[in-house]
Design a protein around this nucleic acid. Structure first.
Lengths: 200, 200
DNA sequence: ACTATATTGTACAGCGCTGTACAATAGTAG
DNA sequence: CTACTATTGTACAGCGCTGTACAATATAGT
């Protein structure tokens, strides 16, 4: 067999995801990331290809673990709206407490990726498109169950996504404790998406 | 007297504002901006100081011309809500038609400025803080006039700002004609801020 | 020991950007 | 013409980053 890698690729990716989440795509150079991992650039290129490829891979992982589909999972034992509400509460709480001001990786990336990085852009757009589809789906379920009045589910899904993006950015500007959740709660109520949930 | 400037400073700033609006702060180097203006870096530094100072100046100009205070000006001859609604309609229409995907300069800048550029950050945060104050003020007027039910004006002001930020980012991802305004309209209605306005 | 081969390390060549110093130039006044 | 001075131009020195080529190394198999 051949020489072994000096690092675990999956662990490296997790570290780099945090780094890019915090600093953004452009600010993370191959040099800086290689140093962060304690490897040479040669190893970086060998393991990840280009920075663009790596970022696409990170977005895919983000999508699998933190996308609308994963975080807004519904089941029969609880209502869609309480799921949405609880999830949004947790997002707000997390963002309020995050000293690194990370917000949402996908939302953070819009400005620096769209119209600038051809390889990444479709992956990023697809992330949001799939989010919306999932929101549409669960909102459809909520309507069927009578939790939500009949409405244009696409517009409501887009509104929910809009709320998430806005909150992610606002979390970096307005840091008063509890305020982010208050805004979120107000908007959920206004959109008819609010429902109390049982605390952890 | 002394040697004259080869360029008009105010015109140069307008050009650079567009450039930074489209490409973002980091992507605009002193080199690239000097080339854009057809001047040397020496002249750039002489006229503008540092890139940071320039950006602060641009944000101030943006604030004067495009902030909440300017764009959401109220007067006695029309309702606050119709002003808000019309303004939001125009923002959405502009963003939908903008092929450069500029969105909102201040919103665009959050991710690349906060926690990264000490000199600019307070200027940016101040932009949003003043926006919120203005929104609070006009919402207070709307309540006094009976246009709006009594509510927590700060939360509603933050919600309006949240909507604007979200729409700015969404405008770069979802490009279906009319959809941005539909989302905006839905949210304005939900927040109780919607009122028909007379078309131009 | 030798071979094969994946991985790491090193160097090259080149590009781009930066702040700064200071020379050169443009303009006016005396 | 000289003096003054704001502006522009040029060069320096340095830093950082990049992709690539290829040598060196680590492993297992024969």
């Amino acid at each position: 067999m051949n020489r072994r890698k000096k690092f675990d690729r999956d662990e490296a990716i997790a570290i780099l995801m945090e780094e890019m989440w915090e600093l953004g795509y452009e600010a993370c150079t191959v040099n800086s990331m290689s140093e962060k991992l304690g490897i040479t650039r040669s190893s970086f290129y060998n393991a990840f290809g280009t920075k663009e490829k790596l970022f696409c891979e990170i977005l895919d992982i983000y999508k699998i673990s933190i996308s609308g589909k994963e975080m807004f999972k519904t089941n029969n034992s609880r209502t869609v709206l309480s799921t949405i509400t609880e999830r949004m509460f947790k997002i707000c709480r997390y963002q309020e407490q995050d000293m690194a001001y990370r917000g949402c990786l996908a939302a953070n990336s819009i400005q620096e990726i769209v119209n600038k990085h051809n390889e990444i852009e479709p992956v990023l757009k697809n992330f949001f498109t799939e989010n919306i589809h999932h929101f549409e789906k669960i909102l459809g379920i909520a309507i069927k169950r009578g939790e939500l009045e009949d409405c244009d589910v696409r517009i409501v899904a887009l509104s929910l996504q809009n709320l998430i993006i806005g909150l992610s950015e606002m979390s970096k500007i307005f840091r008063k404790k509890g305020e982010l959740w208050s805004v979120c709660q107000h908007n959920l109520r206004a959109l008819g998406l609010y429902e109390e949930f049982e605390s952890d």
